[in-house]
């Protein structure tokens, strides 16, 4: 079930399963802690995601094939141990879905055969789990959005997506915490600061829940939102 693939001279990826599955998030969370405790001194970075854990290691301290063997043994031991429960924290994030900022809402509506209003209602309907943090500081990968909304990434990524943009790709959704290049379909924008360096930003953690709430233009501007 668990597979480890060597990628470069000093990196590998552990694949815990296929697709997006909330139970994998708990396995990965547990693996991160166990690997850190046992092999932390050999590693330079760990990037947990939905169903994988990317690891960079010190080539001067361990070689890839040896580390893979050690990791497999550790993970097999972990699989036989029970996973503890966890507390759910839910964050409400206001989103303005107006045309000035919803650059791809029309496209998503066309692809899904839904009206703009239906797309917005569906996007706000359920809370989403933080499956991973990455891509840029504080960028949270949230899932899973309703199947009707699933839209592929843009064929050519935009060179700049504005901070606060709320976007979707496949069955995922996210908020861009800062201006950044990106290939996701933009549905709206939040006035809420999201960058971890901003003291007003919510402290989102892997495993938390996020719920989007539609706001109008006036509320967006009153909350400090920018339309440029």
């Amino acid at each position: 079930m668990i597979r480890i693939e060597l990628l470069t001279e000093s990196s590998l990826i552990i694949c815990f399963g296929e697709g997006i599955d909330p139970s994998l998030s708990l396995c990965i969370r547990q693996a991160v802690d166990a690997i850190d405790a046992r092999f932390g001194a050999l590693l330079t970075d760990m990037v947990p995601s939905y169903n994988s854990l990317h690891i960079t290691f010190c080539l001067g301290r361990v070689c890839g094939p040896d580390l893979r063997t050690e990791l497999l043994q550790l993970l097999q031991r972990l699989e036989s141990e029970p996973v503890g429960g966890q507390v759910q924290i839910e964050h409400d994030i206001p989103v303005y879905y107006g045309t000035e900022v919803a650059l791809d809402l029309e496209q998503v509506a066309l692809c899904s055969g839904l009206s703009r209003k239906q797309v917005i209602a569906l996007h706000c309907a359920t809370p989403y789990r933080v499956y991973a943090i990455g891509f840029s500081p504080g960028f949270c990968y949230l899932g899973t959005i309703p199947e009707q909304l699933a839209t592929p990434r843009k064929d050519t990524p935009r060179s700049r997506v504005r901070a606060g943009s709320v976007a979707i790709a496949e069955r995922q959704t996210a908020i861009y915490p800062d201006d950044s290049p990106g290939g996701w379909q933009v549905l709206g924008r939040t006035p809420q600061p999201m960058h971890p360096a901003d003291s007003k930003a919510p402290r989102l953690q892997v495993g938390d829940l996020v719920r989007f709430c539609a706001i109008d233009r006036r509320e967006f501007l009153a909350l400090g939102g920018k339309l440029d």
């Binding site: 470069t8 697709g19 169903n51 854990l53 990317h54 990968y141 592929p152």
Partner: peptide
């Protein structure tokens, strides 16, 4: 593959977007 579930990226990775 049109897309994959997002995962960590190594230095020097050669990724292929839709174009």
């Amino acid at each position: 593959l049109k897309g994959i579930v997002s995962e960590g990226i190594s230095y020097g990775a050669v990724q292929i977007p839709g174009d």
